[in-house]
Write a protein that binds this DNA or RNA. Structure first.
Lengths: 210, 210
DNA sequence: CTAACGTTTGTCCAACCGGTCAAATTTCCG
DNA sequence: CGGAAATTTGACCGGTTGGACAAACGTTAG
């Protein structure tokens, strides 16, 4: 990447943050094509040309957003610790991912949308950084399996399952709420999900016999 | 709904199918806004006005598609049988859903996209038919739990987990392939996923003790 | 104060897009 | 065959959208 970091004024830093936050709203709700510069500008409380003064093209906003997203997205997995107790480590990972689904649903949906579209803007990083990280963590998990601390299964598909089940609560939020109904679909739903998922994976990963 | 079924000629039936298939391609790849009538018409091998002769508005195509999708989407869950062996029934359900992710990825992505956008066109049915079906099947699962055949957990979150893990292989296909790499990301991936998921849920649902 | 620089906006434009329409062509059926 | 109905298309239209631009306005350092 470019090593030149453009000098930015105080106002530039502030406004860029405001724009990025507004853009996250709009992009995550409507997708790249569905989001218009006008809407983002309105959400950011400024005129369209003013917004375009800070980001020259719509793509630039989206790419900046995506770049940041990817960093924060991998953070929870990075914390998975070889030295910790396997089941506790995995339970902690599930909880962290679920908290991200709860606290950063916009980011989750933005990411999901990019994947649905075939990851046109981030495929190289999926095959690079992401694959490397997953491989490294899969190795740790495989180590635990070989020691017999957890049941023997496919570590990569296990990671997929954790991603899928946790992100589901952000990406398919409407469906989750609709099916759970007004009571169980309220704030409780993340605690219920955490209890269920931690239980499911714990039992699913407990070594069967000897 | 309208009880009047419009009379259609042979050509109308054929062309409408061609259009719907082309539209499924385009909508599932680009979303509603990202899909243009021109692209759908091109994919269907006809001119734009010709396409609009069969479907007067873009929305009509989308809604027809969505209506059909919902029917086929719920079919696998409907098959869940009270009288069958609980673990075998659930394993069968997982396999069926995974086969759908493999054989109908466009439908899966179209549905995922609709959910991501907040289900603007199908929310009523989520709260109606879908909720009813899930409630009914959750009752069956709860029955099995009370009989002690499977472990006691939340049946609805269990269904969510099955949906999430299976659809993941269609919706996040790019990511799955990228992380698995060229070898394990080939045709094998669905068999590997099936083996992993059936195992995970089987162990996760086996009653712990007495 | 003032010149230079940073910020903001009204106006404009070309491309795109959903949809219309009338005219041309093809299919169907007696 | 022949005419009516169904099908197909080129041309067109109005609205939207991404983005350009220059002029106006604000800020700040010397």
């Amino acid at each position: 990447m470019d090593s030149i970091t453009p000098r930015r004024t105080r106002i530039q830093n502030e406004k860029r943050e405001i724009i990025l936050d507004a853009a996250l709203d709009v992009f995550s709700a409507h997708g790249f094509r569905g989001a218009t510069i006008d809407r983002i500008a309105e959400a950011a409380g400024m005129s369209k040309p003013n917004l375009l003064y800070y980001f020259r093209r719509k793509q630039d906003i989206y790419e900046t957003l995506m770049q940041r997203l990817l960093e924060t997205w991998l953070a929870p997995l990075k914390e998975l610790d070889d030295a910790g107790d396997p089941l506790a480590e995995l339970a902690g990972y599930i909880r962290r991912k679920l908290e991200m689904a709860r606290d950063y649903p916009r980011e989750s949906r933005l990411f999901a949308n990019e994947m649905l579209r075939g990851a046109p803007r981030v495929r190289p990083m999926l095959e690079g950084d992401l694959k490397d990280l997953v491989d490294a963590k899969a190795k740790i998990i495989r180590g635990w399996m070989e020691k017999g601390t957890i049941a023997r299964t496919d570590p990569v598909h296990l990671i997929f399952a954790i991603w899928a089940t946790t992100q589901h609560y952000a990406d398919f939020d409407v469906q989750v709420r609709a099916v759970l109904g007004p009571e169980r679909g309220g704030d409780r739903r993340f605690e219920d999900a955490a209890a269920f998922l931690v239980g499911l994976f714990a039992r699913g990963l407990t070594p069967s016999g000897g």
